[in-house]
């Protein structure tokens, strides 16, 4: 059972777009744009985990970075506790940064190799000018205990730790300022399975104890399902399906979600499944197809119809949202939602 989740939105994103200019030629003229995130709307409730899954290049990491404002979105809106933070400058953002932090994939690269664990974890306090020396020392000791590292590790350096322990240091740093929500970008994919389960347990524990919200980005679907209340499936910069995690795994509606799920290898040799094999790779976000991107990859006969069609999310079941795309839904599902007008309620309701 997943934890009851408060309906108060902590964070909402409306029609968020992050485009990177492509410049070519002698005068670096802009000749196009990489549409990494292309019209994403979502909401994150207090104490909720929203999982984001998709193939590499689908824009999930860019989305995470834009939401914590490590990137400035091209258009759209980000509201944090009702306040518009979309275009705040670095100075105005700094006090807010206490509230949202990020955990990175590879702790070996995200931790400064020349700083001891104490200075690594203390750094956020120093930047924000919090506490005196004695207070900071106590906070660091407390944090180490929270993330399950021994007190003797404070004087050590990152290279003296294993991958899992380094990730704990990364988590301690992210927790230092008592944030309200965290972007976890592939936090366990560099770890061995036995260590992976320790870190997942820690993240779930911390959420229960501190009421944290997570945006949990990962490509491992069983990991995402394990930690998430709701899951959003991204394809080429857009969310194509969104539902609570149980529903999305039991009854996926979108053809891409189905393909993604069927590709997950199951650790049970008795299970024999027919896999849906996708041809080719994710198409380039520089020049995406005009109509349904996934319909195009599948060479769907109805692809032509989708050019110019509104493919935004519709609610097919209460709380279960799917892109209104005739090339990616079963005829019955398409029948059910094709007449519905587009709306963006999914950012307000769970």
């Amino acid at each position: 059972m997943f934890e009851p989740v408060s309906d108060t939105p902590l964070l909402t994103a409306e029609d968020l777009r992050v485009h990177f200019p492509v410049r070519t030629g002698l005068f670096m003229k802009q000749t196009g744009a990489v549409k990494a995130v292309d019209g994403v709307s979502l909401r994150l409730g207090v104490g909720e985990t929203l999982g984001i899954v998709g193939e590499s290049g689908c824009g999930k990491s860019t989305l995470g970075k834009a939401l914590v404002r490590l990137l400035t979105p091209t258009s759209g809106k980000i509201l944090f506790e009702g306040r518009d933070i979309t275009h705040l400058g670095q100075g105005a953002l700094r006090p807010l940064r206490r509230d949202f932090q990020m955990i990175f994939q590879d702790p070996a690269e995200s931790l400064d190799a020349r700083m001891s664990v104490r200075s690594l974890i203390e750094e956020p306090y120093r930047i924000h000018g919090m506490g005196n020396r004695a207070e900071r020392k106590k906070w660091v000791d407390d944090l180490l205990e929270t993330v399950g590292l021994s007190a003797s590790s404070v004087e050590k350096y990152p290279f003296e730790f294993s991958g899992g322990q380094r990730q704990r240091i990364g988590i301690a740093r992210a927790l230092a300022l008592k944030p309200k929500w965290l972007v976890c970008d592939e936090p366990v994919s560099a770890l061995d399975v036995s260590v992976q389960s320790q870190i997942l347990n820690l993240l779930v524990d911390l959420q229960k104890n501190f009421g944290l919200s997570y945006l949990f980005i990962a490509h491992d679907l069983s990991v995402v399902k394990h930690v998430s209340d709701r899951v959003a499936v991204m394809y080429l910069g857009k969310i194509v399906e969104l539902a609570d995690s149980e529903t999305i795994y039991r009854s996926p509606k979108h053809a891409y979600t189905k393909a993604l799920l069927s590709a997950v290898p199951i650790a049970d040799p008795k299970v024999k499944r027919k896999k849906i094999l996708l041809e080719g790779d994710v198409p380039s976000p520089i020049d995406p197809p005009a109509g349904s991107a996934f319909g195009h990859r599948m060479n769907h006969p109805r692809y032509e119809e989708t050019i110019g069609m509104d493919l935004s999310l519709r609610e097919i079941q209460p709380g279960h949202w799917v892109a209104a795309d005739p090339t990616c839904l079963s005829p019955e599902d398409w029948e059910q939602i094709s007449h519905r007008a587009a709306d963006t309620d999914h950012i307000r309701l769970s």
């Binding site: 059972m1 997943f2 934890e3 399975v193 036995s194 992976q196 389960s197 997942l200 347990n201 779930v204 959420q207 679907l221 069983s222 990991v223 399902k225 394990h226 930690v227 998430s228 209340d229 995690s245 149980e246 795994y249 799920l261 997950v264 199951i266 650790a267 049970d268």
Partner: peptide
Amino acid sequence: SIPTLETPPKSVL
């Protein structure tokens, strides 16, 4: 130690 699609969400692994 591996979560599967059948493991109850947020349970202790």
